[in-house]
Structure formats: C-alpha cells, structure tokens
Amino acid sequence: MKYRGKVIVTLKPGVFDPQGVTIRSALHTLSYKEVEEVKAGKYFEIILELENCSQAEKRIQEMCDQLLSNPVIESYSYQLEEIKN
C-alpha cells in the first residue's frame, strides 16, 4: 500500500520565531492591520510504501522524532492518507 504523510512542524510556545515576526510586519506594511500574530513552520509531504496504515503511522512518527523535528524547540502533527491508483 502507498501512503502519503503530511507533516507540519511548528515551534513550541515560547520559542522565539523571527520569521513569523518579520512576516507579520510585512503584512502590516501591506495594510493587513488585523494580523495579530504569524507563526512560521515547516511542511513535509512523504510518500511511503508499507503493508498497512498503522505501520505507516509508526514510521512517520519515528521520522518526526528522529529528524524532521527537534524536540527541544519544535512539535509536530501529521495526517496520513492512502494513495489509491
């Protein structure tokens, strides 16, 4: 079975995010004055082939813990979907 994992990595609350702050001020310059906060994160799409969904979920979690996120400063969430041909 083929699966598509969609992983989103964000900074934990309290971790300074200069990208978000810079984007927010650019949005203000573009007259989007209603913007209160912007948080920047990372998005990964991972295609993998495994026997079943629970295996795919386990592997995606391992990838997130080991490489895709740094647990000291980041947290992650993901969605998993089966790719049907």
């Binding site: 300074f16 990208q19 810079t22 740094n70 000291v72 400063i73």
Partner: peptide, 17 residues
C-alpha cells in the same frame, strides 16, 4: 552538537532575523 543531543539546548535564528 546540540542537534545531536551531545550538548543541551538549541540554537535558534538570531533575534534580529
């Protein structure tokens, strides 16, 4: 070294960007 967990903490982007 911090990424490897050999030293504690992390190095974030500079405050001024």
């Amino acid at each position: 070294l911090t990424e490897a967990g050999i030293l504690p903490g992390a190095l974030l982007p500079n405050k001024g960007g």
